[in-house]
Design a protein around this nucleic acid. Sequence first.
DNA 1: TCTGGGGTCCTAGGACCC
DNA 2: TCTGGGGTCCTAGGACCC
Length: 434
Amino acid sequence: MLFTNYKKTTNPDMWFALVDCNNFYASCERIFTPNLEHKPIVVLSNNDGCIIARSQESKSIGIKMGIPLYKAKEIIENFNVHVFSSNYTLYGDISQRIMNSLFKFTPHVEVYSIDEAFLDISKEDKNLLKYGTEIRTKIKQWIGIPVSVGIGKTKTLAKLANEFVKKGISSNGVYVIHNLDNEKVPLEKIELEDIWGIGKRVGRKIRSMNIKTISELMSLNQEKISRKFNINIQRTIFELHGIQCINLENVPKKKKSICVSRSFKKQISCIKKIEEALTNYITTAAEKLRKNRLLATTMIVFLHTNPFRRSVTQHHESITYHFSNPSNDTRFFIRTSFSILKKMFKDKILYHKAGIILQDLIPEDEYQQELFPEEERDKSTKLMSAIDELNHKMGRGTLIYASEGIKKNWVSKSFKKSNAYTTQWDQIPIVKAY
DNA sequence: TCTGGGGTCCTAGGACCC
DNA sequence: TCTGGGGTCCTAGGACCC
């Protein structure tokens, strides 16, 4: 009855698996300290500030995710919990090995996060439970990391199936959802907020509509769903019904921004110290840029006070700066960030966190070919006059704007200054113009 | 000098994810 | 005293255009 026009487009043989590493960071540490098997472990954030990963034993004794270390001091001492500083290089390396192993099962792998991957297993053995179990066994055997496998007809259902494993509904680490609509699935054990894509806020909204369970959410008709929810939540609900709306993305998406930020160990009110920190962040960010063979046109520098200190007036300083030429030059970024910092820094404020974001990223080679042929590196004047000419030809009356990040900012900045007029970037053959 | 409406782009902030 | 970091996407509102 429901969603009939969607079902037509749904492939009945589509199956997704979600492979999720259990307590990933804690499990990584355990590989090298096998004597800690079955003992409680926690892993700390950057400055050893708060707890960002817990082994099952730590979860069971009530250590909460994300709490500051000092709040868990007592329980850590009482239960002899082993505490690790984080080692992201190690986790990244182990993650890589796990993902490589998954490719041995199927080429259709989407690396979703450091500890999760979706697999399109539509064409695999129809004994899904057995298939999932094999993945689980092999990863444990090859790498030493325990994983849970959730299987369903959509990514959202695969996620949900994984949630069942986490909630202990399946004892062997694998769960298959065939059809949520008419299958006996212990849905009452899952909260609305456990559904992939439904967070705290939307959860609250749904509850305020007097919908308290997943079953109730699923019983809404299509008309009501599209009236009440935005497209993302609509998709999520359709996916719960087994109607595939979200594809497997096995080609990694291009990066759109690079952000490096840290909170300080102690609050800082000295601009020199902040400069030091920025220098570090920028070095990291520029390395990432170059590693991905990208250039950035926009830099945002931001400074925050400590949000946990409610009694103090909060400051969120931030300045966005557009470069006239895209770059990945560390020294240039540092110089720029210092001058931005000087503008926004306020005396006598205790800052708690600083960071930079590089965005409007474009591939190095693309940019150089398009805009800066070898012989015309000193292009800005030429380009400006070329554009001027075009504008003249096209006549006044259309505002310049460009459809893509870097070009957009670069062009719009020049044009704001020159008061020139433009049209869609795509329609201006800039390269040919000069 | 007064007035309307339709459209697009940009930005900040919110929401979500891990 | 001490509270993570890195992303993406969507939306609402303002600015600007005709």
